[in-house]
Design a protein around this nucleic acid. Structure first.
Length: 501
RNA sequence: GGCUCGGUAGCUCAGCGGUAGAGCGGGGGACUCAUAAGCCCUAGGUCGCAGGUUCAAAUCCUGCCCGAGUCACCA
């Protein structure tokens, strides 16, 4: 039992183009979960890249390189994006890796044996130019709605997954597990889809070759290939002990546009393989730019690396998680990021650290006084628990709001008690108690904020002079009075320098 | 077109049957340790529109308007 690890995944990112800030969003949320989970025990954060399919092949062709060369280049870009945003992944899987492909083939063989897949006809209108299938209803005057060229009727023998067979079981699972799909909005939509009925799913392609080759010809449908990463990466059929430690996943984080694949197809495939479904799937909202969908045609795609350079990775992480409820859409704007940065991070948090350490330096030579005021310990005794509860519910905004109550209370305490006056009046005991409270509160903030803004949280502790204690279990670390008196603080540069217009 | 979700103070949102709330921005005040930061006070908004149920409706029901998403092999 204690062997179990908290397993969280991001989608594997489709690399037909360069990453944008929306990709970073999912990874950041997953990273917060993983970082928190690691304070409680084992955790495993998986991310990676989805490298097959027509669009990747096309992108490679346009760039004049082989698909493999293209994916090698793009995967490296994605990995550096993770580093830039401090995504502490435990593994990064690429679907072109042998460890993944060989297991995909094994899945295919097993499904053949179990009778969950069969050969059928895959038919539809096909636009050769766009290499896309269209439904009859989507055609415009019998032509491709995209390029207006003629379409042709294509009919191929392909492998089908008997998805429809699992409809009743899916419905039952939804009924008995109301938290299987979150938020509620996504759950409702997927339930409605299920109630509308399911068709079997074509899981092979013969009209392209950039994919996992299947015995007998053709390649695996890229979506099935992609979904399987969640089990190939943790050793399914190759390392059963490892696999059992992680599976079923605690949560798959996804963007809401890919909910159907994760909440309907994926559990059915797992059941066909005799495996349990993931514990939950969370479909977060879309990030828009000034209210508009991120898209190349709108020209509003901006480079997430440049964004991190300008604002700092921690500021971007904070903004994304603080600004909106995790399930809902929200709009990015540089101005709002700047406001959050200056108001929350600079004025409230950074300045709190600064003014506290400056006064400690001035009045007590930067040494943590021996008097521990107890009132904050009583008031905020359950703050760790409350924050943790919010994180586990993926209510990141709520978690940060909880944490900021402590930030505000500490700032308020300074103004109410006026340490400069206590110093003038020689009220040594009161001054010590307040200064200790500030330092101890800041030590707490380091722990509480570490999942969200890891580098700055570490810097808070560094300026406080507390040792490398981030990552400790909160139940142990967040005991009021744990901060050692007599410790020398260091101070330092402003944590979040104010950004001007 | 079907379905889902939303439309509450300038902005972002909470409230979801009992005489309108928070944060930010804006305005005012007292201080000075601090990143001209922090603290205190201050927001008089037809709660999208029109009906209905109820002693009582942002809060339930109906219709409409507006926005977003989704509709099956489209990364």
């Amino acid at each position: 039992m204690s062997d179990r690890a908290y397993y969280v995944t991001t989608p594997i990112y489709y690399i037909n183009s360069v990453p944008h800030i929306g990709h970073a969003y999912t990874s950041i949320a997953a990273d917060v979960l993983a970082r928190y989970a690691r304070t409680r025990g084992q955790a495993f954060l998986l991310t990676g890249t989805d490298e097959h399919g027509q669009k990747v092949a096309n992108a490679a062709a346009e760039a004049g390189v082989s698909p493999q060369a293209w994916t090698d280049r793009m995967a490296a870009t994605w990995q550096s994006l993770c580093r830039r945003y401090e995504i502490s992944y435990d593994d990064f899987i690429r679907t072109t890796e042998e460890r993944h492909q060989s297991v995909c083939v094994e899945v295919f063989e097993r499904l053949k044996v179990s009778g969950d897949i069969y050969v059928g006809k895959y038919e539809g209108w096909y636009c050769t130019y766009d290499e896309t299938f269209w439904l009859e209803s989507k055609l415009v005057d019998g032509r491709c709605p995209e390029c207006r060229r003629d379409v042709q009727w294509l009919s191929e023998d392909n492998w089908f997954f008997a998805l429809s067979r699992y409809r009743d079981r899916l419905l039952e699972h939804y009924r008995t597990h109301p938290d299987f799909v979150r938020p509620q909005r996504a759950y409702n939509e997927m339930l409605a889809t299920l109630e509308g009925g399911l068709d079997d799913l074509c899981i092979s392609r013969t009209n392209l070759d950039w994919g996992v080759p299947l015995p007998g010809g053709g390649v695996m449908y890229v979506w099935l290939d992609a979904l399987l990463n969640y089990i190939t990466a943790i050793g399914w059929s190759r390392d059963e002990e490892r696999f059992r430690r992680y599976w079923p996943a605690d949560v798959h984080l996804i963007g809401k546009e890919i909910a159907r694949f994760h909440t309907i197809i994926w559990p059915a495939v797992l059941w066909a393989l005799g495996l349990p479904e993931p514990k939950s799937i969370f479909a977060h909202g879309w990030l828009t730019i000034e209210g508009e969908k991120i898209s190349k045609s709108r020209g509003n795609v901006f480079d997430p690396f440049a964004t991190a350079d300008f604002f700092g990775a921690d500021t971007v992480r904070y903004f994304l998680l603080r600004e909106a409820p995790f399930g809902a859409d929200f709009s990015w704007s540089d101005e709002k990021v700047r406001q959050r940065r200056n108001s929350d991070l600079g004025n409230d948090l950074g300045n709190l650290l600064r003014r506290s350490l400056t006064m400690l330096q001035r009045y007590r030579d930067g040494i943590v006084p021996p008097v521990a005021g107890a009132s904050f310990g009583e008031r905020f005794g359950d703050l760790g628990e409350r924050t943790a509860g919010r994180i586990v519910e993926l209510d990141f905004r709520g978690a940060l709001a909880e944490i900021w109550e402590l930030v505000s209370a500490l700032n308020r305490a300074i103004d109410e008690q006026k340490p400069w006056r206590l110093y003038e009046q020689g009220a040594q005991h009161e001054l010590d108690a307040l200064l200790y409270t500030l330092c101890e509160g800041l030590r707490w903030l380091g722990h509480l904020l570490a999942p969200f803004i890891p580098a700055k949280a570490a810097e808070i502790h560094q300026q406080l002079g507390v040792g490398d204690e981030l990552g400790r279990n909160w139940n142990e670390a967040l005991r009021w009075g744990d901060l050692t008196a007599g410790q020398q603080t260091r101070g330092g540069e402003p944590l979040f320098p104010r950004l001007l217009d």
